[in-house]
Design a protein around this nucleic acid. Structure first.
Lengths: 151, 151
DNA sequence: GTCTTTGCAAATGATTTGCAATATA
DNA sequence: TATATTGCAAATCATTTGCAAAGAC
């Protein structure tokens, strides 16, 4: 997934930000690793390969900016790190992926499902709460770990 | 919701732990504040009222112990704090509450709903992933904030 | 040239840990 | 008494921030 530089630049200008090499590179790393839920440190390591003089603080600042621009999503797997991944183009309504977290090997995978629509309208009617976004985490055992266990 | 001291003591002994005043008091604070999703610091403040000589580190250690004993649940609202609440007695299958988080006032409320059962069996069949537990967070605007906005 | 952004190092803040003193069984 | 637990203070560690230098437009 390649980054459209001009589009990115326009998006930045629109909000009064400037286009920099650092911002582009961070976005590119995330675009090249879809569904990889990288930590800031992991992004930093990958960015440093081609840009050894970038600072970790810049990665943190950039990631917050990209979040504001809604170009990336934030995921919290409760392991002490905040993780980031590029936002899916299909996510028109700004709905996040759901995550499957394996309790044995720690592997994380994502899937999409729209069945929460029903739940959300139910919540609106029963409790008067208007749902804008949701986050679902399913904990359990992945296919590989289940198969290993059966041997 | 009162704590059954003898039951708590037995549960501790079963795993080789000892019953202490501090552990009892922390559990009691959580039992007296159901669905309140307290941070360690908040638990500490409430515990200190009657036990001024307790340490914050003890609260942190106790909360981890209670988590191991599955007497309490952990909630992460992505605001930099880990929160805890007493486990519902009805939660036979160790399923957590779902949380509604207001994006305006920050209020958090909980609700229960079993509609994820269907999603979970679907995930099992389609992806071979066996779901043990789930966590759902719905972000949006609460009733009060919606009403204020309409004025 | 002006204003934003960066890199570095220092600060922050929630949580954890070492250890000697204390409490439990 | 033997072992687990506590309280305190110091350590940890991800993330944030101040500031002077460098970069974007």
């Amino acid at each position: 997934m390649a980054v459209d530089r001009d589009r990115f630049k326009d998006l930045l200008k629109e909000k009064g930000f400037k286009m920099t090499r650092q911002r582009l590179v961070v976005l590119e790393v995330l675009a090249e690793n879809p569904e990889q839920h990288l930590t800031a440190e992991e992004i930093y390591e990958r960015v440093k390969v081609e840009n050894p003089d970038i600072g970790l603080a810049t990665v943190y600042r950039t990631v917050q900016l990209l979040l504001e621009l809604e170009l990336i999503d934030r995921i919290n797997l409760d392991d002490g790190f905040i993780r980031y991944e590029i936002g899916s183009i299909e996510e028109k309504e700004h709905h996040r992926y759901h995550h499957l977290i394996c309790m044995r090997c720690g592997k994380v995978s994502a899937f999409q499902d729209d069945m929460l629509e029903a739940l959300e309208s139910g919540v609106r009617e029963a409790l008067g709460f208007q749902v804008i976004d949701h986050e679902v985490k399913l904990y359990g055992y992945c296919k590989d770990c289940l198969e290993k266990e059966h041997k």
